[in-house]
Simulated scan of single mutants.
Amino acid sequence: METSRIEIGCQGWNYDDWIGRPSARSFYPQGTRSSEMLDLYARAFGTVEVDSTFYAIPAETTVRNWCARTPNGFTFALKLVQRITHERELVGSEAELMEFCARARALGEKLAAVLVQLPPTFDASPSRAAALRRFLEALPSDMRFCIEFRHSDWASVNTLAMLNERGVAFALVESPWIAREIMWRLATAQTLDFAYVRWMGARDLVHFDRVQRPQDDNLRAWSELLRDLARRNVRVFGYFSNFYEGHAPASANKLKRLLGQKTTGPEDLETQPSLFD
């Protein structure tokens, strides 16, 4: 099936709100400890986006622990550290970039991609465009990179061509920063063999234990786009934020069902044996 090229997961796995309570089931079984969450998550999803790497380069022991606790075929997408993207705005960051990439390589085949998330203030001014071009030239060619722009000036075929020439994907993001219609046109124009998708949402929710704003119509439209990409032999990595509908695991499973993929819900996690039993 072409949808086997589509890998769907969540933006992170360590959320207390995902733990069930006596009165309500969420995602993880009641009483789940933080140290058990990745093991449980990996039974339901085959990929995850790691947010913690945005704040600091992970220790080598941490990366090796992620590998050891997940099955073969599981993948991690790492967010590039914010000192490079937000504090330095890609300027003068070559040494730290190489350090980050060396740590990411420890994942081996479990590395999905590195997400370069740029701030909304990173516009397409000449100085920032020059910084982006220099940054792209410094990226190693042995791993996947994608760039998320949060300024609409970058939503153009010229930007797409510049990225694709270097083998870098334009991150496809459901968000308020770039209109969905423009994002979808860029998706069909990409020339790479992989795509990176993120489903965001207004940051006005305070609990993440259940779906609070269903996006069923939106997800059906996205599922058709992802099927089209898969038919073109594009490998898709897609990740949900809790803010999209209120509960990322439910959103991810909803899309997986639309794609005809097998899902694992909270009721399954309560009865499945451990990966390491």
Rank of each mutant, 00 (worst) to 15 (best):
T3W: 00
I6P: 11
E7T: 07
I8F: 13
C10Q: 02
D16S: 14
D17Y: 07
G20M: 11
G20W: 13
S23F: 15
A24I: 09
R25C: 14
F27I: 02
R33Q: 11
S34Y: 13
S34D: 06
E36N: 02
A44G: 03
G46P: 11
T47G: 05
T47Q: 14
V50T: 09
A56Y: 08
I57D: 00
A59H: 10
T61C: 10
T61N: 09
N65A: 07
A68L: 05
R69E: 01
P71N: 11
N72Q: 03
F74T: 05
T75K: 15
A77W: 00
A77M: 02
L78Y: 05
V81A: 10
V81T: 13
R83M: 09
L90C: 08
E94K: 10
A95P: 12
E96K: 11
M98T: 08
A102S: 09
R103K: 08
G108Q: 09
E109C: 02
E109T: 14
L111W: 05
V114S: 15
V116Y: 04
Q117T: 03
P120Q: 02
F122A: 03
F122L: 01
S125M: 02
A129Q: 08
A130L: 06
A131Y: 03
R133T: 08
R133I: 14
R133Q: 13
R134M: 06
F135L: 05
F135T: 06
L136P: 13
E137R: 12
E137L: 07
A138R: 13
C146N: 14
I147Y: 12
I147H: 10
E148K: 01
F149G: 01
F149H: 03
H151I: 02
H151G: 03
H151L: 05
D153E: 06
V157H: 14
T159S: 02
L160K: 09
L163Y: 02
N164Y: 01
N164F: 00
N164K: 04
F170D: 01
A171I: 00
E174T: 01
E174R: 05
P176G: 02
E181L: 05
I182T: 03
M183R: 10
R185T: 02
A187M: 00
T188Y: 15
A189F: 03
D193M: 03
D193P: 06
Y196W: 01
W199H: 06
R203A: 07
L205M: 13
V206K: 05
R210Q: 00
V211E: 13
Q212V: 13
Q212H: 11
D216S: 11
D217E: 14
D217G: 04
W222M: 04
L229D: 03
A230F: 09
V234Y: 11
S241G: 04
E245Q: 15
G246E: 10
G246T: 11
P249F: 10
A250V: 04
S251G: 09
N253F: 11
K254H: 12
L255C: 08
L255K: 09
K262S: 06
D268E: 10
L269G: 05
T271D: 15
Q272P: 07
L275C: 07
L275H: 08
